[in-house]
């Protein structure tokens, strides 16, 4: 038997599903680095896939898609952790914080929901300012939020976000100490500004651990006190030493 034959047999049994678990996981890893193996696997998948004609389709339950979409939302909002711009321990910490961020069930069921974003910037010394980037469609930053912890001053700057007729943008904060639901920080004015001192009531330590989000609400702000409208996904950018921050 030649090497090619061995490899082809391995690919065939991988696709058939009969490889013992350990070998199976070795092949699953190896296929990513071995184009020949990958090609052989694809060929076997193509050969055997017509067998699936014998499988009876089964209608999924009505809520399965919603469950998947909810997980996608969560995934998208924590996609920051895989953003190449973010690095190191800060990322781990922020990812952990992002996972803690969960809007109420009512919000989760609202169509396009969620956004999240957080603070990046943690220089070696005691951090005093933070930046969160709120991002549309995975491409362009929509808002930039900076927080000066020392003075508890807040500044929000639209980057690509534009005012929407009859709608308002609303900024939210969420932290363990504030309970399970996001709390409104304020509604952006038509000029896309917000009261600089809106965070004054919060302790700097709380702010450091908090997460922020921006949602699109009816004019004047959410009627329910909780985010109701589509929200903008947030992605993190560290601004340490100004390297990646300047890209913005």
């Amino acid at each position: 038997m030649t090497d090619h034959n061995d490899l082809d047999t391995l690919a065939a049994e991988f696709v058939l599903g009969t490889l013992p678990a350990e070998e199976r996981s070795v092949v699953a890893t190896r296929r990513n680095e071995d184009p020949e193996l990958e090609a052989l696997i694809l060929a076997w998948e193509a050969r055997l896939a017509p067998l699936l004609d014998e499988v009876e389709p089964i209608q999924p339950g009505p809520d399965l898609l919603a469950r998947i979409e909810k997980r996608l939302d969560e995934l998208e909002s924590s996609a920051v952790s895989s953003n190449p711009v973010t690095q190191g321990a800060t990322v781990t910490e922020l990812t952990r914080r992002l996972r803690r961020w969960q809007w109420s069930t009512a919000v989760a069921s609202a169509a396009a929901l969620m956004l999240v974003a957080i603070l990046a910037f943690q220089p070696a010394e005691e951090p005093q300012s933070f930046v969160a980037v709120f991002q549309h469609d995975d491409q362009q930053p929509a808002f930039l939020l900076s927080v000066d912890l020392e003075n508890r001053q807040l500044n929000i700057r639209p980057v690509t976000a534009e005012p929407v007729q009859g709608r308002s943008y609303q900024l939210w904060i969420k932290a363990d100490e504030l309970g399970p639901n996001p709390r409104s920080v304020g509604v952006l004015t038509n000029n896309m500004t917000i009261d600089e001192s809106a965070l004054r009531q919060y302790d700097p330590e709380l702010l450091k651990a908090a997460t922020f989000g921006i949602s699109v609400e009816p004019e004047g702000g959410s009627p329910t006190g909780q985010p109701t409208g589509p929200a903008i996904h947030g992605y993190l950018y560290p601004t340490g030493e100004g390297k990646s921050g300047h890209q913005l």
Partner: peptide, 30 residues
Amino acid sequence: APKLLGTVLRILRDRAWADDVIQDVYIKIW
């Protein structure tokens, strides 16, 4: 989804289990 659920359920034989796997499958597809 109906075809993939049928495929997964035939292997796992447990509806709740298959539903969980289908969720993972569509996340992977994404």
